[in-house]
Amino acid sequence: MNVLAAAADGGVQIGTGEAVVFWVLGPIALAGALGMVLSRNAVHSALWLVNTMLALGVFYVVQEAPFLGAVQIIVYTGAIMILFLFVLMLVGRDSSDSVVETLRGQRVAGILLGFGFAGLVGAGIARATQDLPVTGLDAVQGGETSNIEAIAELLFTRYLLAFEVTSALLITAAVGAMVLAHIERDPGTRPTQKELSRARFLTDRPQTLPGPGVYARANSVAAPALLPDGRVTEDSFATGIDPQEVDQMPRPTGRAELGTPDASLGSLEPTVSDVPGGQDAGSTPR
């Protein structure tokens, strides 16, 4: 923009600092957006989106909207994105995470149209706003009146009705979410602790499943448990996740590491806990 022309229109000159902020954060926001679309993992997508939103929040502050900037960071990135992550955790990973396209031509057409749209709208905006003067908000805020006061003044006068209607919208959304997420259960149909316990002992495996990562270097959910002989315990596989390849600890080899044979034999006193799973019930008098 022509600086002289802007000054002649009574506009505000955009400072160098803002330009620096824009050129730093703009690419970061773009990168976040692209990362969100491109990353396989939905959790990564969410984190990329948080990145973009934070950048946008800074843009708001820079553009004389500190209130919106704060709301963007606190409510959007703080609350809404956490909600996303909650649901992601609830739903877990599934085949939809795969980035293989199933609709024929969808990806190509989408990208082509995206380029076309971005080009057309970008060109249109650039053409229409190249001489847009920056009036600035000094007249309505700054000085005595803060940004929040300026917004509040309009919100509770001109936009009062819309504001009130918004409350109805929010309560409707809250009730709607409760109705949708709620599962109707008849009272008494939920199994009690006693029933669950009884059912567990009627199975072949009353004890808990083995935890992951035993004797392994990883404590990831994807890492399976190992048996003492080094085999993988299939019981410990997490559902829906390919078991991770586990790097085993190097086997102890030297005498010092293995210890004495007596020590490794342990005590000769039999204990109940020596019977695996307590399954040798027949021989044990009760």
Partner: peptide, 28 residues
């Protein structure tokens, strides 16, 4: 009408492109 919501969204984006192009063509 495949039932795939993404196909419909593709149609919507296509329509938006056409509208944007038309607007641009008219103003330019």
């Amino acid at each position: 009408q495949t039932g795939f919501v993404r196909s419909y969204a593709l149609g919507m984006l296509g329509g938006a492109v056409i509208v944007a192009g038309a607007l641009l063509a008219v103003t330019a």
